[in-house]
Design a protein around this nucleic acid. Structure first.
Lengths: 350, 350
DNA sequence: GCGGCTTACGACAACGTTGTCTTATCTAGT
DNA sequence: ACTAGATAAGACAACGTTGTCGTAAGCCGC
């Protein structure tokens, strides 16, 4: 067991391994890919040499020959800014690593670049992904979907909003979570509950709004249009929405923001107005970002298992590669939310 | 100009183009890669066919043959959570798109996975990146650097903290920015200025602290140890640090958090203590996240051109590919910060 | 001892590009 | 008119794998 590591790694190939082991390259290939048809003894000998020389197969060659790139794309409308994006990557990467895949980040909208979906589609066809994961709201964009299907790429969507039998997908029951959240406010005694909506093209925002509406109707109240205001999932939009709401002749006693970022904006607006929370105003969010826990008052919200959803999506994708026709399987995976009851919601002060 | 698009794209190759154009595949290859040695007329004819058939070269084949993968890795200690990560990706992707590269995200630390840097190194060698971009604090990790150098990969670092002539890098003068920031507080009249530090392994945190210390000394004051507290760049750590600071017998009148996330935590702690900002306490941050603008009071901070730094890093990387020995060039690129003077800092109330 | 089956392995041709070298053809200089 | 030198294009061999098919050896049943 002397330290006889090879010199600097001037790329050792499958041929080197085969020669050293005295077998054919095909046999080495079989060992690498854990295929059967190799005797235990031979397998061990080859494996030992692979380990000693620190051999790693060349991804390009492998991919050219096998038509598999071991690359999975995760597609965002826009990378950056959101906490959500990071969480998706965390989960997706975990699943990729486990299965020996790499994660390529793609973005449909590239500020300052020419050609929108067109350029994206080109980029797609060139990259040779084995499959892609689509995140909202891109997962509902007909153009994007068409581009991916034209390229013949298997894909899994996270939290899509329609065409549910068009592909496998993973989701969480946003509507139910939002309904519960609203019900909790109502049952605390709130009767003037406002809702700050997400971007119009965002399916999960719409479902959260539905849950809100549903809860009110369930308690026999008709949602008032002036209490449902448009937001953009960014803290500044939450701030502005709350400003409007608090300036109303009959301001709400509770505000439900469709995501935590906007809820943080609401907190800021409340601070500006000198409101004491949660006494003067209850605020609840959705997502459970780290900032929600470090807010004051600590934000009551819904924990969304984003990373786990992304992980499940990649798992479905990779599992599907075995199958002849990926589209045949319409795997669906539902994950659970968790209400995080903290301090920002309380019965309204009389 | 009839609409005679080809049928579904059952992968058209360079051979198809060559046949249709009546030229050799090499000539097509030359057209694709904008090499010289093709007549204008031939070039146009070939290009037209490429466009008509929507041909895109096979990345794997190209990569196998040319030893270039057109893949650039961007390496984080941990993806997720930070605003920073998203911004880096935005910039890096912009540069990649421009040059026809794709961006692969890698993470050194994979929670719940075996093998730390070792597994990472394997993953690296397998992926065949053309080059990688390292972000802090990973860009200062000797093990990671050694792994990358062993693999013979060109790399560019973003905001490294040492070994400045080991590779090209891009940076921003954190120290100067923090010094100015501190000076502004001092010159407003603050004499008890606390600093919430970042993680110990984070070079830019250390430089910001140096700037803070330097500013105080410049004004003839010696920094008090109890006013420099450890944080972790997360909002919760900012909250906790502020709690400690505000409980001091002689609490600071201003708190400088080494990043915005922690500053947001400080804001929360101040709200908890019923402080009126900025009268009772001035708070300043560093980074200029979107949340900083939607806070109340709006957070005074330093705008860091993160996306631009990442973009520059990728540009340097790609430019360097032309050169024989990448290590020969030690390109350095400095970008400027911008103080964002908003409402969270003001002269102390007497 | 023969055919038929299984197991373990190898030969060889893809895979779709790019790199290197060679070969026509055209242009300019004398 | 002849050569030198540029320019345009092609032939062919890599690149490092995997897929397909072939085959030798061993085992079984009779």
């Amino acid at each position: 067991m002397r330290n006889e590591d090879p010199p600097v790694s001037t790329s050792v190939t499958i041929v080197d391994i085969a020669r050293q082991a005295g077998v054919s390259i095909k046999t080495v290939s079989r060992v690498i890919n854990r295929e059967e048809g190799v005797g235990a003894e031979t397998r061990a000998r080859v494996q030992a040499i692979i380990d000693r020389l620190r051999y790693r197969p060349n991804a390009s060659a492998r991919s050219l020959s096998s038509r598999r790139s071991y690359l999975i794309g995760v597609i965002f409308l826009e990378v950056g800014a959101y906490y959500y994006v990071g969480q998706v990557q965390v989960g997706a990467m975990r699943a990729c690593r486990r299965a020996g895949y790499h994660l390529v980040v793609e973005q449909v909208r590239t500020p300052g670049a020419m050609g929108g979906v067109q350029a994206f589609a080109q980029s797609l066809r060139e990259a040779r992904f084995d499959g892609v994961v689509l995140t909202p709201p891109t997962c509902d964009d007909p153009e994007v979907l068409a581009a991916i299907e034209t390229a013949g790429l298997p894909y899994v969507r996270i939290a899509p909003d329609r065409d549910f039998d068009r592909s496998p997908y993973v989701f969480m029951d946003d509507r139910a979570a939002a309904r519960e959240q609203t019900l909790r406010l109502w049952d605390m005694g709130h009767r003037r509950i406002a809702f700050i909506d997400g971007p119009a093209d965002h399916g999960s925002a719409a479902r959260r709004r539905q849950g809100y509406v549903e809860a009110l109707r369930e308690r026999g109240a008709e949602p008032r249009p002036e209490w449902i205001v448009q937001g953009a999932f960014r803290s500044l939009s939450g701030f502005e929405a709350a400003e409007g709401l608090l300036g109303l002749p009959e301001p709400p006693t509770a505000i439900f923001a469709a995501n935590d970022e906007m809820a943080m904006g609401v907190l800021a607006a409340a601070a500006k107005h000198g409101l004491s929370l949660p006494g003067d105003l209850s605020v609840v969010g959705f997502d459970d970002t780290p900032a929600a826990e470090a807010a004051w008052p600590r934000l009551t919200t819904i924990h969304q298992p984003t990373a786990e959803m992304a992980e499940a999506a990649v798992d479905i994708l990779i599992d599907g590669f075995g199958d002849e026709r990926f589209r045949g399987r319409t795997a669906i995976r539902q994950l659970d939310y968790t209400p995080m009851i903290r301090d920002s919601a309380a019965p309204p002060r009389r």
